[in-house]
Simulated assay, not measured.
Amino acid sequence: MRTTRDRIRHALSFEIIGILLVVPLGAMGFGVHAADLGVVAVVSATVATLWNFLYNLMFDRLMKRWAGTVHKTLPVRVLHTLLFEGGLLLFTLPFIALYLGIGLWQALVMDVAFVLFYLVYAFVFNWTYDKVFPLPKNV
Rank of each mutant, 00 (worst) to 15 (best):
P24A: 01
P24S: 01
P24E: 06
L25F: 02
G26W: 09
G26D: 03
G26T: 05
A27P: 06
A27I: 07
M28D: 00
M28W: 11
M28G: 06
G29C: 02
F30I: 04
F30P: 10
F30R: 08
G31S: 07
V32T: 09
H33E: 09
A34S: 02
A35Q: 11
A35N: 07
A35L: 13
A35E: 14
D36I: 07
D36P: 13
L37R: 02
G38E: 13
G38L: 14
G38W: 12
G38D: 14
V39P: 12
V39D: 09
V39A: 09
V42L: 12
V42G: 10
V43N: 12
S44P: 12
S44W: 00
A45W: 11
A45Q: 13
V47Q: 02
V47K: 06
V47N: 02
A48G: 13
A48C: 08
A48W: 10
L50A: 04
L50Q: 03
L50V: 14
W51Q: 05
N52S: 03
N52P: 03
N52T: 06
L54A: 12
N56G: 03
N56L: 03
N56T: 00
L57G: 14
L57S: 10
F59C: 05
F59W: 07
F59A: 11
R61P: 00
R61N: 13
M63D: 13
K64N: 03
K64L: 15
R65F: 05
R65E: 06
A67Y: 15
G68T: 09
G68A: 08
G68H: 06
T69P: 10
V70G: 02
V70K: 03
H71V: 04
K72H: 03
K72N: 04
T73C: 14
P75I: 01
P75S: 02
V76A: 14
R77F: 10
V78Y: 03
V78N: 05
H80L: 05
T81N: 15
T81K: 05
T81L: 05
L83C: 03
L83H: 08
F84H: 03
F84A: 07
E85Y: 00
E85G: 00
G86T: 01
G86E: 11
L89D: 13
L90A: 09
L90T: 11
F91P: 07
F91C: 03
T92R: 11
L93C: 13
